[in-house]
Design a protein around this nucleic acid. Sequence first.
DNA 1: CATGAATGAGAGTTCATTCAT
DNA 2: AATGAATGAACTCTCATTCAT
Lengths: 220, 220, 220, 220
Amino acid sequence: MKTRDRIIHSALALFNEQGEPNVTTNHIAADLGISPGNLYYHFRNKEEIIHSIFDQYALDLSMGFQPEVPAESDEQRLLAYLDATFQLMWRYRFFYANLPDILSRDAELQNKYLEAQQALKANLFAMLSRFRETGWLDMDDEALQSLCSTLKLVASSWIFYQSAQSPQAKVTPVVIYQGVLQILKMVSPMTTDKGRAVVSGLIGHYREQMESTKAASDSA
Amino acid sequence: MKTRDRIIHSALALFNEQGEPNVTTNHIAADLGISPGNLYYHFRNKEEIIHSIFDQYALDLSMGFQPEVPAESDEQRLLAYLDATFQLMWRYRFFYANLPDILSRDAELQNKYLEAQQALKANLFAMLSRFRETGWLDMDDEALQSLCSTLKLVASSWIFYQSAQSPQAKVTPVVIYQGVLQILKMVSPMTTDKGRAVVSGLIGHYREQMESTKAASDSA
Amino acid sequence: MKTRDRIIHSALALFNEQGEPNVTTNHIAADLGISPGNLYYHFRNKEEIIHSIFDQYALDLSMGFQPEVPAESDEQRLLAYLDATFQLMWRYRFFYANLPDILSRDAELQNKYLEAQQALKANLFAMLSRFRETGWLDMDDEALQSLCSTLKLVASSWIFYQSAQSPQAKVTPVVIYQGVLQILKMVSPMTTDKGRAVVSGLIGHYREQMESTKAASDSA
Amino acid sequence: MKTRDRIIHSALALFNEQGEPNVTTNHIAADLGISPGNLYYHFRNKEEIIHSIFDQYALDLSMGFQPEVPAESDEQRLLAYLDATFQLMWRYRFFYANLPDILSRDAELQNKYLEAQQALKANLFAMLSRFRETGWLDMDDEALQSLCSTLKLVASSWIFYQSAQSPQAKVTPVVIYQGVLQILKMVSPMTTDKGRAVVSGLIGHYREQMESTKAASDSA
DNA sequence: CATGAATGAGAGTTCATTCAT
DNA sequence: AATGAATGAACTCTCATTCAT
């Protein structure tokens, strides 16, 4: 891995663990065993590192949600979608926990973020529409729009919200699974009988995932 | 107003405008035209100022949601509740925008916050239960619990979420009204016919409020 | 007691307990339950308080060592002398622990201190001379001079030295008694048979005192 | 000289001249013509500078008193010992003048200091024992122990005591020589005839040294 | 005599960033 | 590419002292 990428990698890890405001450029350099001067050879400033992390995030986002990717079934597609969403949230969780501050410093980043959000929204709407067509959801257009907004809000805020609720402010994968479950529960009331079966199946799946993760972390 | 209160007031205003991490104790003192020493005469440190702001927030919270306050009707009560919630969010918006960082620094504040959240949750649940009894909502217990969680999450995260979405990161009262509307739309699918009328009425009310606020700020 | 005297009293107590550099004028005022403004009504500044404490010390010094005070015997006189010396050291121990710093700040105090030291030296020399005449000591003039210097040095430095040696840096009355014993042991080799008996008697006396003090503080 | 060493050097000089509490980290940086940030690049805080000075002191101490170093004669060895002791006191005199305060702040330094003191005491006792075996001293075990304590006390306190006695609080090399002489005079009464000759010789030597130093500083 | 709010210089320290090598 | 010493503005906080009341 090139130094530039190693910096991005290390910065992301430290930001996630300790929060972006608590990680200095010197910390990052020390973590990598390189000099601060070298770090500044690869990046003009700390902001540029954050930018690069965001670019990577945006790339992951666009890769994970390509609708053209064929799936065995709509159910599979939904599963993949949820997985991708929350994996992304987990991988860039520092970002979600400090969004307002990070964006307010940097207008360019703000714009990039808004673009990504637009894409996300379009994506989400397309998926929900398809599920309605498939006969899983029973909603009118307005309700669909509204659900779409709410889901995006909940997904975007989940990490932020949970990291304030838990006493240790430690975000764990378990928290992520709870977020997926929360989303599914929100969709549940709008489902048809057919749709309800699908959603229930997914809820069962994620509960299992969560329990096995919990068990793994407890025994560790 | 006493200096101590002026400090809290000024700090709150600056925190809301510029974000807590970007406001130094010297900024606050300069804003008031007092010396830094004087600020530290009234508060041991910056954290204590934040604590005092939070105490005021907690007080406002408990005052705004006293169930014993008689209301003309359940509809009135709901209206008052929503108003209070979002006014509070508006008044202490810096807090909502920086929650994880602020709480991670200060275990005592974390506890105070969690207590306030418990109270809020109990409150919200009581209110929704009553509406179900009144025959406005048609939901089983589990769905009610779930709705309750979602509403709290959306309310708590609204400012955070919106301040990241809007290009200038400026949170305005209009944003607040959108939050109330969002909440009402989330409740809407669970209503009975009787309940739907009430919710529709409220939606209409807040749309008007929002429009008039928009008009006022545009002409300014 | 007048406020002025209460300030001196409280300042002395706090200085002794916590060390002069660690005691602020606000601490003193708070300890007395008066306002800082009031403290500065009675004293122009912190230095003046220290001056006043020193004046009281100098007074105690001159009172405790008046040669004209009749004593039953030379032995009694020596006992009284040693008691007075070490009581003084105990009462003003903060002073002994910070002498260089305190004096370097204040030329006037330095002069007062030197005067007091001269008087002390003259006093001590007179007493030792008398003991030689009485036939307790066997020394020539030069040795007497030298002993005199050493004794003064040891007495003056005892608190300073001990407070560095003990891990807790806490000066207790036991430390004081050890100082008296140290002094007596230094005189011992210069004594005649007659003198040795006197010194041995005193050593026994102070050992008892020390033990009873230790016992008292242990049971407390 | 490396910057780190220059900082230690400059700090020691300033501490000695003005007293440790009166020298700020900014003073040290300004004295060297470097930025405060640079000083903190080399040392985490002021305490660490003091620690480093102490480490250097401890090193000097252990180097100066290595018993395995062969000497032409016991007399030479004693001479070297006294020289080393008082040179050390001179070089680190700020330390001796502020001991209680400096140690009370820093438990680790306190321990290091006590260790150094133990070594010093053992050293001193070994040397006096050897002189007794050589037939220079005529004392029983208890008296030897007592003399040992007294000598250590006087040596450790000399700078402290003298810096309070001299009007300008200026400690000069002449003061150091007086300290050596004081020590020798304290040993003198315990000597045999043979020993007395040695001590007298040393006293003469140091008187000469002192006079020539005085002359040199007067003509300067 | 007394209050207590207010002052302001300056303390120790941090950190994003620069620069000579 | 990389080093690591160096910068300097800014931060939080302290405390002897003043002053209006």
